[in-house]
């Protein structure tokens, strides 16, 4: 399997004015295969947002290299789409205008082909009838669907998702997890999914990278053995509870060893 994302010995530290530098990531190495769904799971302060910025080319690592599709990341690239924690839609555009925003923002014109593509993506995320609506008329879950469609517009190979459902209420969150599985089965992308939630990571991923905080390191990699397509029944699988307990246990144990 070819490698979509490679982190090799990545260290990232930030200079704080007049203070000692803060190390966000320490000697981080992992690989993600093409069309693999991998979650990065860890407590606050494990450098998840740094990871995202590095991968999207907005930040250069202090040491080590990051490669996407076997090319070293030296800046932002079109083959990486991002979904943020908050939908961050533009209230002055309607739904379809938000989906086509990346094209216009790059200074390109929205051709009828792009329009069709946007409509097709809206249908995929279940918002076909809402394309002409104002975005502030939509619920939080629907807004996040729009932002997923926006991230898919340039047809990236890789989708970065930064705790995309953490701002939603619990019920919508569950619903969106299954929706994401459905969308992913239709558009097989490599997904790097950043989350705080153990059940979310287990339900969605092929593999989970568990990270330790301050500085962020890989603590453990876990393969999710559940068959796809996953459903409500996956949650009832005895291995689900087992793995969930195992991850929670190791995160708690690590937390107890952390200097406060």
């Amino acid at each position: 399997m070819s490698k979509a994302i490679t982190f090799s010995k990545v260290t990232q530290s930030f200079e704080r004015r007049g203070q000692t530098s803060i190390q966000a990531l320490d000697d981080l190495s992992f690989e993600i295969g093409a069309r693999e769904f991998v979650s990065v799971l860890g407590p606050s302060g494990c450098g998840k947002s740094t990871l995202l910025q590095l991968l999207s080319g907005l930040l250069m690592p202090s040491h080590g290299t990051i490669s996407v599709n076997d090319q070293k990341v030296t800046g932002p690239r079109d083959d990486v789409g991002i979904v943020f924690q908050k939908p961050t839609l533009l209230p002055w555009f309607d739904v379809v205008g938000n989906v086509t925003f990346p094209i216009r923002h790059k200074g390109l014109s929205v051709t009828s082909e792009i329009q069709d593509r946007a409509q097709e993506l809206l249908e995929l995320v279940g918002l076909k009838e809402f394309s002409a609506r104002r975005v502030d008329e939509l619920s939080g879950g629907m807004q996040q669907r729009v932002s997923i469609a926006r991230a898919l517009l340039l047809d990236p190979d890789i989708l970065l998702m930064d705790e995309p459902f953490s701002a939603l209420d619990a019920l919508t969150r569950d619903e969106m997890s299954f929706e994401l599985l459905r969308i992913w089965s239709a558009k097989k992308k490599t997904v790097l999914f950043i989350t705080h939630s153990i059940p979310e990571a287990l339900l969605l991923s092929d593999r989970i990278i568990v990270m330790t905080p301050r500085p962020g390191r890989v603590m453990e990699e876990i393969n999710c053995p559940f068959q796809r397509p996953r459903s409500q029944e996956t949650l009832g699988d005895p291995r689900f509870a087992e793995l969930s307990n195992h991850i929670r246990g190791s995160l708690l144990k690590d937390n107890a060893n952390q200097p406060q």
């Binding site: 932002p76 991002i82 943020f84 790059k106 200074g107």
Partner: peptide
């Protein structure tokens, strides 16, 4: 929002 500024930078917009 800083996310939109990140989005803009990731799209290499001027």
């Amino acid at each position: 929002p800083p996310e939109l500024i990140s989005l803009s930078k990731s799209l290499k917009a001027s």
